[in-house]
Amino acid sequence: MKILYFAWLREKAGTAEEEVVPPAGVQTVRDLIAWLATRSPGHAAAFADLGSVRCAVNQDFAGLETPLAPGDEVAFFPPVTGG
């Protein structure tokens, strides 16, 4: 599974992109966040406030309960501020 981080989530996690193999129990975005947050103090900081984290699965906006499959591209980022 490919994980992407943008903006301050990238800075906090300390990486823009990583390839991971989550444990079998990880079935939703919420599960994935809980597991990713254990990978480093930076990851924990990135996910400390889920109210300011948005997610996309395979480049479509997704929610915390969105189910995941191996091979998915999952991106985490703050609320968007373009324009």
């Binding site: 943008f6 903006a7 980022f77 968007v80 501020t81 373009g82 324009g83």
Partner: peptide, 14 residues
């Protein structure tokens, strides 16, 4: 378009 772009297109400003 600009209203939706500002809230639905993935861009981030620093």
């Amino acid at each position: 378009l600009i209203d939706w772009l500002k809230t639905k297109a993935p861009f981030w400003k620093r």
